[in-house]
């Protein structure tokens, strides 16, 4: 009877676990194993030990003794990925501001909540194509509007210096009204109003209340949003690179995820792509643990 009790819930989980095993567990394990192989998808995988990691993270000296990174692209694209992640704090700040505004008892707040969440339910490709038009150098709305105030706008997506900020603007626009805002809204509604009333009686103004009540009370929410955004940030940028810039110019918008795709499906280096994925996984794990280590104290 006891045995039966233990088996029944597992059987209920069986369909889900089967899907999890097929689409997550086995591919992840395969990627881990593949990173130690060379595989071009045509021939059987060949074990190469740590070769892929040496190619990825190692360096070499030329005849003059100058050191060159084996894969300078990896470091450049890691930098690009981290650069684009600078959008995370800005997005979080915008989400918080939006959530605070939309938490007020203002007319039409439900409408605005929907409007700000809209980018999250629209097709990503369509939105990116729309942004491509907005950024267009010849007839894009953004440069057109900049021209009204006498500013000659840059060639956003084709400039080495402006392409990354251009993508960051899209990221901020697309994410600030998304799950971050919803979570902040939920967090704000969980703050007991008595705290604000007591502070008001003690003479605290709006800024004091925000600084000393809202922000500390939202710390667990902020921490959660930050961790998930960092994980997403490391893995992100593929769709924008693929649709808007093809990773250019000169790799300025190539992120690690786009680089992994290129190695796997354009260059046929499946083992190297797996090694890249593993390094990316290690990076995400490290940063998440670091955030957990130092961020958790602030939330407690």
């Amino acid at each position: 009877m006891r045995h039966h009790h233990r088996l029944t819930p597992l059987l209920y989980l069986l369909p889900n676990l089967t899907g999890f095993a097929i689409f997550v567990l086995i591919p992840v394990a395969a990627a881990l194993v593949l990173s130690f192989f060379r595989w071009d998808l045509f021939h059987p995988p060949k074990f190469v030990g740590l070769d892929n990691f040496i190619d990825l993270l190692g360096w070499r000296r030329d005849a003059e003794g100058v050191i060159h990174l084996n894969d300078a692209g990896f470091w450049k694209y890691l930098y690009n990925t981290l650069y684009l992640m600078l959008a995370i704090p800005i997005t979080m700040f915008c989400s918080l501001v939006l959530a605070v505004l939309l938490n007020q008892k203002l007319p039409g707040r439900m409408f605005f909540r929907s409007v700000f969440f809209l980018p999250n339910i629209c097709a990503g490709v369509g939105l990116l194509l729309l942004w491509k038009f907005l950024y267009n150098n010849d007839f894009g709305l953004i440069n057109h509007m900049l021209a009204w105030v006498g500013i000659t706008g840059p060639d956003w997506l084709n400039s080495y210096n402006w392409s990354k900020p251009a993508l960051m603007i899209i990221m901020i626009w697309g994410s600030m009204g998304g799950t971050g805002m919803i979570l902040y809204l939920a967090g704000l509604q969980g703050i007991p109003p008595e705290l604000y009333e007591a502070a008001e009686i003690d003479g605290a103004n709006v800024l004091h209340r925000f600084r000393h009540i809202t922000i500390p009370m939202l710390a667990p929410t902020t921490f959660f949003i930050f961790i998930t955004a960092v994980i997403g940030g490391f893995q992100g940028g593929f769709d924008m690179a693929y649709i808007l810039t093809k990773g250019g110019p000169d790799g300025a918008t190539t992120t690690l995820s786009y680089y992994i795709y290129n190695h796997a499906f354009e260059y046929f280096n499946m083992g190297y792509a797996a090694a890249l994925s593993l390094v990316l996984f290690a990076l995400v794990l490290f940063v998440t643990m670091l955030s957990w280590r130092f961020g958790r104290g602030a939330t407690e």
Binding site: P9, L10, L13, L14, L17, T18, F20, A21, L25, I26
Partner: peptide
């Protein structure tokens, strides 16, 4: 509360079956 070892066993069986 479920014994997590049961979950592990089940996953193992699924992977072996696959």
């Amino acid at each position: 509360e479920e014994d997590p070892r049961g979950l592990g066993w089940l996953l193992g069986v699924i992977i072996a079956a696959l």
